[in-house]
Amino acid sequence: MKHLKDEMILKAEDLYFSYDDDHNHSLNGLSLEIKKGRKIAVMGANGSGKSTFFLCCTGILRPQKGRLYFQGEEYRYDKKSLLKLRSRVGIVFQDPDNQLFCASVYQEISFGILNLGVSPEKAREEVERIIDVLEITPFRHKPAHALSGGQKKQVSIADILVMHPDIIILDEPAAALDPKHTRMVNHIVEQMTEAGITVLMSTHDVNYAYEWADEVILFQEGRVLLQASPMEVFSNEEALKATNLEAPAVLSLFETLCRKGILSPSLKTPRNLAALERYLEETK
């Protein structure tokens, strides 16, 4: 039991939040638990409370009712506790233009880590390292307003990664990115997981969520409709219908192929197109 408790990194209990006092609740009795080191996809229609929940996680918004816990400790809203919390919980906002406030990439990345009270020498080292790891070097001397959307996204992720949080929240990181930058962001996310960081990502891409996530959380009208493995969530037609989602292409195709007798249902359900292709190659 103690072991389980150690693993839990974030826990929400019956959260209620409303932007306009009691009329429309953006969070409506939301409860969930997130385990350490997991890759979690948060899905749900626009306005289902994903972004509001994320802002609650970093203590920017304070739920009117309910409790939040970080590593077993309840959230406190005094300045010191908030600073401590925010040094552990990082959030990458959806629109980089709302996050980047410096004209210089280098200054921008250095902001967060300096706020942690790190010495300038150490901060410089960290900033250089993250610029290297996230492949920012080619445009590090460009002003922020001359960067492309994808480059801004890279910088906004670097902003947070440089602070070495335990958990990173990505609010639709692939929104408005071209395929190349989407791949790049996905690659960065892989690296985060390998470094042991818990990743919480909201996305509308069912195929990506199905392939990438350890766990999928479906939000509906400020509540958690379902929290389970991708396999379970995406084969639950009712839940998908309720949240306006579709089953991942690979899963649908695999089911059809099984039904037609081309593939055996005893095979392990493929997570991506490559795995399904391999099955098909092997059949003949």
């Binding site: 802002l55 970093t58 920017i60 300045k79 600073l83 925010r86 040094s87 990082g90 959030i91 906002f93 709302n98 996050q99 406030f101 410096c102 210089s104 280098y106 200054q107 921008e108 250095s110 902001f111 967060g112 300096l114 706020n115 942690l116 300038p120 901060a123 410089r124 900033v127 902003d159 947070i160 602070m163």
Partner: peptide
């Protein structure tokens, strides 16, 4: 909000 999320404490400090 975004600045607060990065532990902004009222002073903007950046490296040059």
């Amino acid at each position: 909000d975004a600045m607060e999320a990065r532990c902004y404490d009222g002073r903007i400090q950046v490296l040059s």
